[in-house]
C-alpha cells in the first residue's frame, strides 16, 4: 500500500511497533536467557508509539502538508515477519529479529527523508527511533555472537 498522509504514516508506525513488541514478548517467553533484553525492547516499543503520537498530535496543523507528506512510501517494502514457527532455533529467532529491526529502521529513515521539510517534528521523531532501532541490531548481533 502506498502512503500519502501523515495519519497513515503514523498508523503504520504504530502497527510496526505493536507487532514487533508482540514478537519480542514471544521471544522473551521462549528464550529465558535473554528475556530481559527482549522485554526491554517490547517496552521501548511502547515508548516509541508515545513519541510518534506526541510528535504528530503536537505538530499537526492546517498549515503543514499533512495530507501530502509521505508520498513515495510503499508499506509493502517494510513488511515484517513476526511469526516464529515451531522448531526454530535461537539463532534463527535472532536473525529474524535482526531482519525485522533493519526493515523497521529503513521505514523510519525513508519516511523521515520524504517528509523532512514538510512535517516538522514527525521526521525528527522518526529519526530518533531509527537510531534506537539501529542500536538494537548491534545488540542482537552480539547475542548471536557476531558483535
Amino acid at each position: 500500500m502506498k502512503l500519502n498522509t501523515a495519519s497513515e504514516a503514523v498508523s503504520f508506525s504504530m502497527e510496526l511497533e505493536n507487532e514487533s513488541a508482540e514478537f519480542y514478548q514471544d521471544l522473551a517467553q521462549r528464550y529465558a536467557e535473554d528475556k530481559d533484553t527482549f522485554l526491554s525492547f517490547a517496552k521501548e516499543n511502547g515508548r516509541n508509539v508515545v513519541q510518534v503520537q506526541r510528535a504528530y498530535y503536537g505538530v499537526i496543523t492546517d498549515a503543514i502538508e499533512g495530507c501530502y507528506s509521505f508520498g513515495g512510501i510503499d508499506t509493502d517494502n517494510y513488511c515484517i515477519e513476526t511469526t516464529l514457527s515451531q522448531g526454530k532455533s535461537y539463532s534463527d529467532a535472532l536473525n529474524m529479529a535482526i531482519a525485522l529491526e533493519e526493515k523497521i529502521t529503513k521505514y523510519y529513515l525513508d519516511a523521515a527523508e520524504v517528509s523532512k521539510s514538510l512535517m516538522a517534528d514527525v521526521p525528527q521523531a522518526f529519526g530518533r527511533i531509527a537510531k534506537k532501532r539501529n542500536e538494537r541490531v548491534f545488540k542482537l548481533k552480539s547475542l548471536l555472537g557476531e558483535g
Binding site: T5, Y57, T61, I64, G66
Partner: peptide, 12 residues
C-alpha cells in the same frame, strides 16, 4: 474534511 485536517483544526 480529512482526518489530518480535522486533527490540525483541533490542535489550532
Amino acid at each position: 474534511k480529512t482526518i489530518d485536517e480535522s486533527r490540525g483544526e483541533t490542535r489550532r
